[in-house]
Nucleic acid binder design. Structure first.
Lengths: 196, 196
DNA sequence: GTCTATATCATGATAGAC
DNA sequence: GTCTATCATGATATAGAC
């Protein structure tokens, strides 16, 4: 996940712009961030931004796609490294918690980008590729008897809903302790809920 | 909860403005809604809006407060009508599902208002009065032995996280069936997870 | 209290030099 | 490819009649 998305060459101007945009969008908000603001933060000119991206929204879209692609790659690695649905889902929760702590802006942007009035054409996170993969993990666990038989969407929501809620609490500053401290507790609740 | 908040007199202009704002904010987004748009939708003049509210953000704040007050009243009624933490929390989930179906805009606005770049000074939903009340329900259940002993924030997140995730799926159009159809399934998962 | 018309301002996007 | 300077647009908020 730390890997740079394929559409962005490391060290290039586009990357600086995207990094600056992430910071500004999460701190001040998308609509309170002007293009000159982004130029200043990325130490680039306004013209450069419009040379590399179609418009302001295009920057947000590239940012969103880059982040979801990175998360998707992490999930695919998890699928390779873990055999059971139990282990895979626990690894997912661990990764989400660690990502929140190591890159708070990225997690916040991914969780709320769709609901922040811009990116109207993008699919919401919970129907995006990463969430599809998480549903697939749950589905396979249901087929091999690890997870009780029920609606897959319900099972996935219940299995990860608590963790996501805790992540938002952490992002909102309501939870003081680092998320990994709560991992065992949340996982036990979540797995008890769906385990066969 | 259907009751009109105390700060808004029924049938008055303020109420029409707030109702129109809710619809426009959720459909087009806060920043894509101009004050003339709101005036047109509420069939009021621009000057009238600025007479009743300080500015555009003030309308959003009144809307947010009105909705959370309504929800809080519903929760207090639940506390009166139900004795055990089990029954109270199940009633909360039922109410949230029904509210989503009956007033989709209201639920969407409450869930995402804080994260939509406006209302910067408001506390996020999960630290607002309604969520405090839900945590209190869980806390009491922990004290009388209905719920396993653990961090209250973790327990509350796990108990309601699945339901909230399903609500967002429904709001995003990912879930086709009405939420009440899934109530039993979600509740069973949620309660299994935290029950003593 | 409500309205129309308007001043003021900031933004997104572009043109054109280098 | 990168920059500075500029334009055109559309918004918020207000002034002042009724």
């Amino acid at each position: 996940m730390a890997r740079t998305p394929a559409n962005v060459q490391p060290g290039q101007i586009s990357e600086r712009i995207i990094a600056a945009a992430l910071q500004l969008f999460t701190q001040r908000g998308y609509f309170s961030t002007s293009v000159p603001d982004m130029a200043r933060a990325a130490q680039v000119s306004v013209g450069s931004i419009y040379h590399h991206f179609k418009d302001k929204e295009d920057v947000a879209r590239a940012l969103y796609l880059g982040l979801t692609v990175g998360l998707q790659e992490a999930l695919e690695k998890i699928a390779l490294d873990n055999a059971t649905a139990h282990d895979r889902c626990r690894a997912v929760m661990t990764t989400l918690f660690e990502l929140t702590e190591s890159n708070r802006d990225a997690m916040e942007f991914m969780l709320y980008a769709k609901h922040r009035d811009f990116l109207p054409s993008e699919r919401p996170v919970c129907s995006s590729k990463p969430f599809e993969t998480m549903r697939a993990f749950v589905q396979s666990g249901m087929e091999n008897g690890e997870i009780r038989n029920m609606d897959v969407m319900v099972a996935t929501s219940c299995l990860f809903g608590g963790a996501i809620r805790l992540i938002t609490a952490r992002l909102d500053g309501v939870l003081a302790e680092p998320l990994p401290d709560r991992l065992d507790g949340v996982w036990e609740c979540a797995w008890r809920g769906v385990a066969a």
